[in-house]
């Protein structure tokens, strides 16, 4: 086994190799990031000033392009003034890994600047609630509708052409409308998640339903199943595992609508935190918050994948994901 080539088309990797590669997939970007951050000759386009010298507009802690710094330095050299000092730095919007790692912790412990503002964990929780409601409402309507239109051609014809059209309308475009109808708080945000998810959901799930082997339906018919039994005892259990996978993917899409949704009306949740921190130039916090979204997304998906294996024990072989 150990001598098997690393690149064998469509052959599963050994568990050990799988682990190594999974680790690498995270380590490689981290390494690149660290290299850019900690090696002064890679990129580092700015100078951070430690001594303003005689340059009147320089201030301690200020960042300035290296060329400008060099010009001013030369000018002072010729003029015989006090020389400015500084070190090479990356722009503030690219904090180093350790800064972000620290921010990861401190962003939770820093008190909000104003009383009315929320702690980070409160913002996050708010975001999760928005996603939850938007996705749940969409699923309550979208899943049954998808299954029905995948099963009955008439149902599909009745609304799919319209949905095909509607799904091209960008969900954020409905922002202003949603605010006008639903107010400025959570209503329009949930609506945007809903609009962003629902139309795709119906199409994806009806497609999944259509892929169910028709021979299973025919077998059920010859076993005396009526229409109701066909739907509830064959179609639904038959599509459930794939439908569950679809839902996981759709949930990922719902997260991508979150940022837009939270900018609508009164900015809120993690997006509010990110924009706020960007305004204060706390880019380490911004990065930390963005990563939190990623981590929450990844963890919830892993959790759902685990759960899926429990829920669909007959899907042993094809449940790898």
């Amino acid at each position: 086994m150990t001598s098997a080539p690393w690149l064998a088309p469509r052959i599963a990797l050994s568990q050990q190799r799988e682990r190594v590669l999974t680790l690498l997939s995270f380590l490689l970007p981290l390494l690149i990031w660290a290299a850019v951050s900690y090696t002064p000759f890679i990129w580092h386009p700015n100078m951070e000033i430690t001594e303003p010298g005689s340059v009147n507009y320089f201030q301690e802690g200020m960042q300035i392009e290296r060329e400008t710094f060099q010009e001013e330095y030369n000018t002072q050299l010729e003029a015989g003034g006090e020389l400015p000092q500084g070190f090479r730095a990356n722009p503030v919007y690219l904090p180093a890994p350790h800064e972000v790692a620290i921010a990861f912790y401190t962003s939770f412990t820093t008190e909000p600047r104003r009383r009315s503002e929320q702690w980070l964990h409160e913002s996050l929780w708010h975001s999760i609630q928005i996603i939850f409601w938007g996705f749940t409402l969409s699923s309550i309507l979208g899943v049954p509708l998808g299954i029905l239109s995948g099963t009955f051609a008439a149902v599909s014809r009745l609304h799919e052409p319209f949905i095909e059209f509607f799904r091209y309308l960008p969900a954020p475009a409905f922002g202003a409308l949603a605010v006008a109808i639903l107010g400025i708080y959570d209503g329009p945000k949930i609506a945007i998640i809903f609009i962003g998810t629902f139309f795709q959901q119906v199409l994806v799930i009806s497609n999944t339903t259509r892929k169910l082997d028709i021979a299973l339906l025919e077998a059920a018919l010859t076993l005396g199943a009526n229409r109701r039994q066909l739907l509830f005892k064959v179609v639904i259990p038959g599509v459930l595992p794939q439908l569950y996978k679809d839902q996981r993917i759709l949930l990922g899409w719902a997260w991508t609508y979150l940022i837009v949704a939270e900018l609508i009306g009164t900015s809120s949740g993690i997006t509010w935190f990110i924009t706020q921190q960007a305004r204060y130039q706390n880019f380490d916090n911004v990065f930390a918050a963005i990563m939190m979204i990623g981590i929450i997304g990844l963890l919830s998906d892993l959790l759902l994948a685990r759960l899926g294996k429990r829920l669909f024990p007959w899907e042993r072989s094809s449940n790898k994901s």
Partner: peptide, 10 residues
């Protein structure tokens, strides 16, 4: 049937 049509979830 010629193909396998057992319900995989049962």
């Amino acid at each position: 049937f010629q193909g396998y049509t057992l319900f995989p979830w049962l």
